[in-house]
Simulated assay, not measured.
Amino acid sequence: MAKDLVFYTNPMSRGRIVRWMLEEVGESYDTKIIPYEEIKSPDYLAVNPMGKVPALVHKGRTITECAAICAYLADVFPNAGLAPPPESRAAYYRWFFFAAGPLETAITNKTLNVVPNEEQRRTVGYDRMETVLDVLELAVQEAPYLAGNEFSAVDVYAGSQIGWGLQFGTIERRKSFEDYWARISSRPAKQKADEIDNALYQG
């Protein structure tokens, strides 16, 4: 019997973020692995015209972009407790959009060896990499989790970017980042998600 949640991914992609989020939610889901040689196929472009993974289809509704998928899952499955009450979401929204905007852009530009000069820094949304990391460091030092005292979907999304940054050297290794990543990456749902994706990758 088909499940309400269908997850399109590749084990070596940002889909690992959504896999973690799905395991935190705890609902059953179907997984469709999209090999990279098929990612621009007509069948998959009908799901995500960008030709990127991941994508999620829930009861016929398609959601793309990791941040949007994580936020959506937290909202439609409130019993998982992965989003603060609406009146307490200031930090939650702040760091979701910070990670999806300034942080990801800064990391991408660094990877491409694009360094804005002083004049260009007025127009780019992140100023410069050092500014982004300093602000992010304050966020992970302020409370145990990005939205406060409780783990939430924003820790899955933004935390994954920190974890990958530390792993691949795109984020400066700072003790506060390492401590935060150790705190969230030890969660059972994260361990299970990694086990599933690692097995798919090796298989």
Rank of each mutant, 00 (worst) to 15 (best):
R128C: 14
R128Y: 09
M129G: 00
M129T: 08
M129F: 10
M129I: 03
M129P: 03
M129Y: 14
E130W: 01
E130T: 00
E130R: 02
E130Q: 11
E130L: 03
E130F: 02
T131R: 04
T131V: 08
T131G: 01
T131L: 03
V132K: 08
V132N: 00
V132D: 04
L133M: 00
L133H: 04
L133N: 04
L133G: 04
L133Q: 07
L133Y: 05
D134A: 06
D134V: 00
D134N: 14
V135W: 08
V135H: 04
V135E: 06
L136W: 04
L136H: 03
L136Y: 11
L136I: 08
L136K: 05
E137W: 03
E137I: 02
L138K: 14
L138M: 08
L138V: 04
L138D: 09
A139P: 09
V140N: 07
V140R: 04
V140M: 07
V140W: 02
V140K: 05
V140I: 00
Q141M: 07
Q141R: 13
Q141K: 14
E142K: 09
E142S: 09
E142A: 06
A143W: 12
A143F: 09
P144V: 01
L146K: 00
L146M: 07
L146A: 07
L146H: 07
A147M: 11
G148P: 11
G148F: 11
G148A: 13
N149C: 10
N149L: 04
N149H: 12
N149Y: 10
E150F: 10
E150V: 11
E150P: 00
E150M: 12
F151Y: 15
S152Y: 07
S152M: 12
A153R: 09
A153I: 06
A153N: 11
V154C: 15
V154E: 14
D155Y: 13
D155T: 01
D155L: 02
D155A: 09
D155M: 04
V156R: 12
V156D: 13
Y157N: 10
Y157I: 03
Y157V: 05
Y157M: 09
Y157L: 12
A158V: 02
G159L: 00
G159F: 05
S160Q: 15
S160E: 13
S160D: 08
Q161I: 13
Q161H: 15
Q161R: 09
Q161K: 15
Q161Y: 15
Q161F: 15
Q161C: 10
Q161P: 02
I162Y: 06
I162M: 14
I162P: 00
G163S: 15
G163I: 12
G163E: 14
W164R: 14
W164D: 01
W164C: 00
W164H: 09
G165N: 11
G165H: 12
G165F: 13
G165R: 02
L166T: 03
L166A: 10
L166F: 11
L166W: 12
Q167W: 10
Q167N: 11
G169K: 13
G169I: 09
T170Y: 15
I171Y: 01
I171E: 05
I171D: 06
I171A: 03
E172I: 00
R173P: 08
R174A: 03
R174V: 01
K175W: 05
K175P: 01
